[in-house]
Amino acid sequence: MSASFAKALEAAHDAAGSQNNPASTLYVVATPIGNLADISLRALHVLAKVDAVACEDTRHTQQLLRAYGLDRPGSQLLAVHQHNEAEAAQTVIARLAQGERVAYVSDAGTPAISDPGARLVAAVRQASYRVLPLPGASSVTTALSASGMTGEDGFVFSGFLPSKSGERERAVQALAQESRAVVLLEAPHRIEALAQALSVLGERRITVGRELTKQFEQIETVTAQALPGWLAEKPDRQRGEFVLVLHDAPVAESTGEGLRVLQLLLPELPLKTAVKLAAEITGKSKNELYDKALALKKA
Rank of each mutant, 00 (worst) to 15 (best):
L65D: 02
V121K: 14
R239Q: 15
P267L: 14
S40A: 10
R239P: 00
L44R: 00
G69D: 03
I93D: 08
F155S: 01
A97K: 09
L184T: 06
L266E: 01
S138C: 13
L134Q: 12
L265I: 09
N287F: 07
N84M: 07
S2L: 12
G258L: 11
F216V: 00
S147A: 12
T31C: 12
E203C: 09
A54M: 13
L201N: 05
P228H: 14
L70G: 06
G99H: 13
Q263N: 10
T31H: 07
E241Y: 03
I39C: 06
V172P: 05
S147M: 11
L36V: 07
H13N: 06
A112N: 15
R125W: 03
V140K: 07
L194I: 10
A174D: 14
R42W: 01
L271M: 13
G148T: 08
A12K: 07
R237G: 04
S163G: 04
E85M: 15
S114M: 08
Y27I: 00
L227H: 01
A193V: 03
E85T: 11
R210K: 08
P135E: 00
G258K: 08
L36N: 08
A48Q: 12
K234V: 05
L264G: 01
N21C: 13
Q263D: 12
L78I: 15
I113T: 07
L134S: 13
Q238E: 05
S145M: 06
A94Y: 02
R210Q: 01
E10G: 06
L269D: 07
C55T: 14
V208Y: 05
S106L: 12
E203Y: 05
N21Q: 03
A89R: 05
S4F: 09
A252C: 09
A171D: 04
L289M: 10
L9K: 09
P235R: 13
K214R: 02
V46S: 11
D38N: 08
A54D: 15
G17V: 09
R66M: 09
T25F: 13
T141A: 07
Q63L: 10
L269P: 00
R101W: 06
T25H: 12
F242N: 08
P32M: 09
V121L: 14
Q19Y: 10
S254T: 06
L96A: 14
D153K: 09
S75G: 06
G99Y: 08
A176S: 15
L78G: 03
Q215T: 03
P162A: 03
G74I: 11
D51S: 11
D71I: 04
V172D: 03
L132P: 00
V53L: 14
K297L: 14
A274E: 04
D115S: 12
P228T: 13
L231G: 02
K298P: 02
Q82V: 04
D291I: 06
R72S: 12
F155Q: 03
I206H: 04
G240H: 07
K292S: 09
T255M: 11
A224N: 01
A112K: 00
A3H: 15
R59P: 00
G159Q: 13
G283P: 14
L269K: 11
D291P: 02
P270H: 02
G154Y: 06
S106I: 10
A279S: 15
D291Y: 01
A6G: 05
I113C: 08
